[in-house]
Write a protein that binds this DNA or RNA. Structure first.
Length: 183
DNA sequence: AGGATGATATCC
DNA sequence: GATATCATCCTC
């Protein structure tokens, strides 16, 4: 397992999103190592993407999204669940990739088939906002000889308000994987 | 179809 | 300071 370098995240957001499929999200906390395989993601392209939180410019909330790539953007949604994103592209773009579903690999007891649930299972909360994903206990890694996957491209979830941006196929998942949040 | 539940942005 | 809104999930 090889930790992904900063350079990986600084690439084009769509490319990073697609490449993240099949990689492993690893979180060590209180001596427990939790590992999940990323099976579903969404790309949020930046200030011009009306479905992205960054579409209204830099605020206290979105400053992480506008910062350096390879950092976690975690926020509370609907008062009860957290969602985790990884910031992409060079600083100032406001782009990120939302992690939507994981396949449980190690120490994941509860369901991981959705952005809110996977954060619960990985024990990720808002204190992880701004965390560097190149740290020693929170990072994404690739296996040496990854098994080839078939990718499905479709529309994002919960962004009907975003006009033409709601129709763009910026959600990617591994075909036939049983842990996808929605068809 | 609706409720839980809180941070955020945008208005006065 | 008030309120409308929300990249969700579960129960009915």
């Amino acid at each position: 397992m090889q930790k992904l370098p900063r350079k990986f995240y600084s690439q084009n957001t769509i490319l990073v999103a697609q490449e993240l499929l099949g990689k492993f999200l690893i979180n060590k906390k209180n001596g427990i190592i939790r590992i999940g395989k990323i099976v579903e993601v969404e790309a949020y392209l930046g200030a011009h993407d009306l479905a992205a939180h960054s579409c209204r410019g830099i605020t206290k909330r979105t400053q992480i999204m506008y910062g350096d790539p390879g950092y976690a953007y975690v926020y509370l949604i609907y008062g009860m669940y957290h969602c985790m994103n990884i910031v992409t592209e060079p600083s100032g773009q406001g782009s990120a990739v939302l992690i939507r579903a994981l396949e449980p690999i190690k120490h994941l007891e509860t369901r991981t088939t959705g952005p809110g649930l996977l954060c619960q299972a990985m024990s990720i909360d808002k204190t992880y906002n701004g965390q560097d994903l190149l740290s020693n206990d929170f990072y994404v890694a690739a296996q040496k000889d990854p098994t080839p996957i078939t990718m499905v491209k479709t529309t994002r979830v919960g962004v009907d308000y975003a006009g033409i941006w709601a129709k763009k196929k910026l959600r990617f998942y591994i075909k036939n994987n049983p842990y996808i949040s929605r068809k």
